[in-house]
Design a protein around this nucleic acid. Structure first.
Lengths: 218, 218
DNA sequence: AATTATTTTTAGCTTTGCCTAAAATAAAAC
DNA sequence: GTTTTATTTTAGGCAAAGCTAAAAATAATT
């Protein structure tokens, strides 16, 4: 696998995020990478020459299989570094994203492999998102939004959406973490908020909080 | 402290390595960073505008106090990452340099501080080189070349020069590591090679090996 | 179908950072 | 104290990556 610039990798990442393998519009891509449309046009032209994307002018850009492979390898690095930052260095889960954006560009297969081992071969990152395997396979995306469970269910938190730092702050102040287990004690017919109970007491979660917190039956 | 490009940081690092605080010639700098003289001329002009160096045309370039501060902070990061790679990920000391060259450019005070703590507040890196402190202070440069000790001395290896991968390979095959202790059993009058002894036996070290291995009386 | 609005591309400019080749300066040799 | 040699700087080019403003193509609306 050749070596790519950070800018290129950022475009690939954005394309994977927005479209997976499907075409993405110039405008959406521009918004995602924080550049102007004209810059995107020439950027994807460069990527096209490296066979990382297929470009149809005025129609859209699409990752090639190689592009998807690269995207996954970047995502793998990103999520492994996030895991390192949280598990080993004690960062909060709201702080790690910008750091991982830098670290994900470090080039070394060996480093990634060793990091993976050092972290105990994790399948999911600190937010519960799946970490792509070495060969590109994706572990399952875990859980359903809390709102999807019915009264009486015993649930375990397995994933949270990246819904901004205020959301993470709220999780922190409510002491909600991956792995926590609760019983669903009540569901409000008025505003769909949910009462979660545990051995230490119970509390209410708003509908919008519930929508960003994923759990499984436990 | 503002943010700098990787190229800028590489020039600063090279200047610190070559001159410390003293003037460095264009040619030496060019050689060190692996660029042509003309590239260096404009690079240092840019650095001058940021007050990281003082340039006297045709005479030489010199780090300013701010430049020295920056150089030390890069060196700190470099050596902390090397420590991480060896101590935590199990890399060999000959493999870590190119990786640390990438990692040293990651921007985050917080990350450096946490890494430092995670590694147990080390004062020296895996080669025994001092890791600059947060405030720029330098721990002592340890040891004297093995050749400087006299027959009968009990010594402990505390530092090795970065003398290329063949040198490191030789250390590995001879099982020489930081912390090892030996007795100086003999010094050849013919070629200045040295016989080191330990509980497990003894062996001879060539003069050029000795020159790159540093020890203290133990 | 024609016009308007939106999106995308082209054209041309800027900065960083490298290059080669030619000119200018400093150092060394005669 | 010239002249030759070595070093350093200008001058001019090139690629990556961004920008603005104008032109072209597509999509939406009357």
């Amino acid at each position: 696998m050749k070596t790519h610039t950070e800018s290129e990798e950022n475009y690939i990442k954005a394309l994977y995020h927005l479209g997976g393998g499907l075409p993405v519009s110039n405008g959406d891509l521009a918004q995602r990478v924080g550049a102007k449309g004209s810059s995107v046009t020439q950027a994807v032209k460069r990527l096209g020459q490296k066979d990382l994307v297929n470009v149809v002018p005025y129609k859209g850009v699409q990752l090639t299989p190689q592009g998807i492979r690269l995207a996954k390898s970047i995502l793998r690095k990103h999520r492994l570094w996030e895991t390192f930052l949280v598990d080993k260095l004690g960062f909060g889960w709201d702080e790690v994203h910008p750091l991982a954006e830098q670290l994900e560009h470090i080039q070394s297969e060996e480093l990634v492999d060793r990091l993976f081992q050092f972290l105990g071969s994790p399948k999911h990152d600190p937010h519960g998102d799946p970490i792509p395997e070495r060969d590109g396979q994706m572990p399952p995306v875990l859980g359903q939004p809390i709102g999807a469970f019915s009264k009486g269910s015993e649930i375990r938190i397995v994933r949270v959406e990246d819904a901004g730092s205020e959301f993470f702050d709220q999780l922190d102040t409510m002491n909600i973490n991956l792995g926590n287990t609760y019983e669903i004690r009540a569901i409000s017919a008025f505003d769909s908020s949910v009462e979660l109970g545990s051995s230490t007491g119970s509390f209410w979660l708003s509908q919008s909080m519930c929508a960003n917190i994923y759990a499984i039956q436990s």
